[in-house]
Design a binder for these strands. Structure first.
Lengths: 229, 229
DNA sequence: ATGAAAAATATTGTATACCAGATACGGTCT
DNA sequence: AGACCGTATCTGGTATACAATATTTTTCAT
């Protein structure tokens, strides 16, 4: 039988409206700058349905997920509101992040190849060249990307999943946390030390460095972010 | 005005059918012994609706949550299946647990009162008296309770929330992980060391002890739990 | 004009009807 | 008899209708 190749793509059958709505809503919340506006932000369910072009059911199921993950809060017969984390909750998130990333770094010393660690270093060098004093905003992105790279390199799916949601909130307040240039500079130095420890494959050292580096941020939030409450 | 107490309970108005269904389903999944049966376990949506006495909508919303949390997997037009974690996923869960509980222990050394640490010790003593060689199953429960107590004492809501879901899976394979008496005995000794370190408020030491103790379990699963896949 | 009561409105929670795809079974053609 | 196709049925996905309640507006009596 003359079967010629037809090159059909697998057509993503897994993407239901619910899944798409979830992705769209989460993306929208991530980008909206939760902590910029002073007032509570309310989401109109019907309006969202119309915007997404689907009925309430998939939107509601997506909302239920976002509520469980702490992004929104649904008050019966009142509305759905975007959640603003309190200072304490932010600190808890940073603390969990510190615990997970330090474990990720430990895993890297045990499992990563030399090439993978070299990739991390090159990524880091690119970042530190890019944004120094001038573009703090860009550097803030690079900063988070550095940490995400470490977590990704650990090759632990679960740590990646958990921290992904944390970073959505962390990113939202990133602008404030790097307001002082000192932090940016110290940050680069500490990152260099972390890379060095990874290259030496010193598990205990790199774990301590990563943990303390991130807990520094927690302490900084504790001191300077009273406006959150 | 003569207002006498009437002792009416707050009648949880916040508990919607969706919430109740979520709790009921999660509880059922937790207790069903996921890894006992060899075959895939399928849940019938409409059957569950009838059993719970509600319509499909709240059950479906609850299912969406459970799917996001990794307890079930919904295949369109096929059915909803209870998820069996692979060996690798179990090890990842134990690894995350190790990271979070060691951080929790660190927090205890910084924030807990002497009385709280004493409570932990008494709890531990009660456990070790209770189940020794004979009732390994009970000891396994006590074992997990010990770890949960540490996490609870850290007073970090987020760590509590994350580990709660992990423990549902961990508990499901606990019976296997304590099959060797050595593990139970070694476990008690290590727990004693952890308590001692907490009393000395030695953050670095207790962090290391908790981490290594839990990572021991990860290594044990790696070696002896091939049957999971 | 003002206050309260009542009705209209808005919004989420729930139930149900319908849709589309996947499987199993049975019939038909070879 | 066996391969193949159509249909019947079962399943989860989606849309919509209905219910319950908080809010806002309207209305009417004082």
């Amino acid at each position: 039988m003359n079967t010629m190749k037809f090159a059909v793509e697998p057509l993503d059958t897994g993407a239901s409206f619910k899944t798409k709505a979830y992705a769209a809503l989460k993306s929208a919340i991530s980008q909206m700058g939760i902590y910029d506006h002073p007032s509570e932000i309310r989401l109109d369910e019907r309006q969202l349905c119309e915007a997404l072009g689907v009925s309430r059911t998939p939107v509601r199921e997506a909302m239920a997920l976002l509520e469980r993950e702490g992004f929104v809060r649904s008050v019966p017969r009142r509305g759905i509101f975007v959640v603003r984390k309190t200072k304490r909750e932010i600190i808890e998130m940073v603390t969990v992040w510190a615990a997970l990333e330090s474990m990720a770094a430990r895993l890297i010393t045990q499992r990563a190849t030399d090439a993978e660690i070299r990739d991390l270093e090159e990524l880091f060098l690119g970042f530190s060249d890019a944004g120094l004093d001038e573009h703090l905003d860009e550097y803030s992105d690079a900063n988070i990307q550095f940490h995400q790279s470490i977590i990704r390199s650990s090759d632990c799916t679960l740590i990646n999943e958990i921290t992904e949601n944390l970073f959505v909130h962390i990113r939202a307040i990133r602008k404030i946390t790097i307001q002082q240039n000192d932090r940016a500079h110290r940050s680069i130095v500490q990152h260099q030390h972390i890379i060095d420890a990874l290259k030496k494959r010193d598990a205990d050292l790199v774990e301590r460095l990563v943990r303390d580096h991130t807990l520094d941020l927690a302490a900084h939030v504790e001191k300077h972010c009273d406006f959150l409450d």
